[in-house]
Structures are given as structure tokens and as C-alpha cells.
Design a binder for these strands. Sequence first.
DNA 1: TTCTTTGTTCCGGA
DNA 2: GTCCGGAACAAAGA
Length: 287
Amino acid sequence: MPELPEVEIVKRSLFKMINKASIIEIKVKNKNLRYKIPRNFIIDLVGQKILRITRRSKYLIFYFQKKLLLAHLGMSGKFILIRNGDKKMFKTNFYYDLNIIQKHNHIYFKLSNGFTLVYNDIRRFGFFKLFNVNELNKVTFLKKLGLEPLSAKFNSEYFTIFINNRSKNIKNLLMDQTFVSGLGNIYVNEVLFMTGIDPLRLCNNLKKTEIKSLVLNIKKILKSSILKGGSSIKDFKNLSGKSGSFQSFFHVYGRENKNCSRNSCTGEIKKISISSRSSFYCVKCQN
DNA sequence: TTCTTTGTTCCGGA
DNA sequence: GTCCGGAACAAAGA
């Protein structure tokens, strides 16, 4: 489940391997992703050169001469790089992991640098959208997004002002992409555990020190995960098919009924549902 | 067949 | 008008 750190790793891998390459050919095997791949998708992109690749929240943005390609990986979307014309498909030097099922390959981008970029997505919740180059400011997906959690502007002052006159619980606040963009369920669970805050605590009851600590821990956990190559709790793989290592550092997510991993805490991890999303927390040190 | 999983969007109620 | 939570949506695997 790609959240900010995973998307950042994908962006870096893509930048390293295919930046400045041109698209020679596109094969759409299944156009029914989260949104239908439009008719003009192929004609708009073939012959275009990738000028740069950036990330905003969990979105990837590919800059071409005439178009912008916005991509979201949804729950299970991944990019795989194979050699052009390779019939063995997943037995290349670049992808030896057979957890990838070929029937979920939906789009092939044949590139000028000898590689083909494959988009694979089991649940097909990911999507691609095309925009004109000067229309980035009109993209509604991006317009609504709040601050990047790793930016300097995301700090205690911003946090304090935003929660003024708001009463939602802290779990939902951190999940709210208009507040801070890029955190998903897994990282929010981890941040709240690290900070020792009950996910149901109302955000307008937070103390100054808790807000400060939350901001610090959000940055710390995201940076640490990026350094370790992203998590791989279920589906995440980087371009070379290797899992990240951050998943082994999860303290609460998926640890229902297990003992709290915090030194000196004898509590147990409980699972509850908040806004129909599962939340894991220690009954003792998060209250 | 039902339940779970995700981020995003939409809708009704306060 | 604004805020909030819950539900719907997409697909697939257990």
C-alpha cells in the first residue's frame, strides 16, 4: 500500500532509470483502471520525451514536452522495468520476483533506452490522467492537497492554526489529505504509537508538547522509511523487485493482540475501526 | 457468498 | 456555508 515514502522511492527509481527517455510505443492491455484510460492516451504520449519526474503527496507527475501525466498507484499499483522485447518477462536482471502475476500487467510503455516500463496493478485502484503542460494548477487532485509533511511549512504553528475550531479525532485529522498530504493508514498508526497518543483523542484537546511531538515524529518516521527503501507490508516493491525493509519496523500496524513493543510497557495492541479503517494502538501507553 | 483492504469522493446531519 | 463521520466505489483474494 503505497504511501508517501513508497511513492518517493518509486519516483527516485524511475528518475534514475528512465528520465530523459522517450516513449516509442504503448500497449494498453486493460484500460479499465480506477478511471478509464482515454482514447487519446497513446497518441498523446508516443514520441514524447520524459523531461522530469516529480512527486506530490502520493501522486507521481511525469513531465513531457506537450503533456503532464499524473499517476496514482492506488492500493496495489507498481511499476516494473524489463528489457525491450524480453519474452521471459519476469526473468530478467531487473525483476526476479515472481509474486508479480502477469495477468495484472495493464500498460506497457516501450522506451528509447532499451527498457519497457510495465504498470501492474492487482486491484486496479491506481490511475493515470493526462493534462496539458500549463494546466498543473487546474488539476483538482492536486489543488485540494494540504502541506507536504516533510516541508518546513508543516510545523507546530501550522498544526495549531489548522485545528482551531475543529473537533475531529487525531486519527482522522492525520488521514485528512487537505491538512497534511501523503500519510495513509499505516503511517498514521505508527506516528500515533510513537507519540503515545490515543487515535480517538480529539485534536482540539492536544497539548502544545504533543503537537510538537507529533510533527517531529511524522517527519522522523517518513524520513526513516524513505532511507530504508519504503515499507513492503503487503504489495510494495521497488523497481528492481526488492522489498523495502521498513515493514520490520512497524510497531503497531497488523499487531492485534500482541504485546506492546515499547520497553517497559506491558500493554497489549488492540484493533478498532475508525471511520471504517482499522486502527491499531496500545491500550496502555496510548491513552 | 461475504468480508477485508485502500484513497478519494459524495452525502446527510449537525 | 462549514465541518464531520459514514458509506460508496473500484477489484480481488481469502
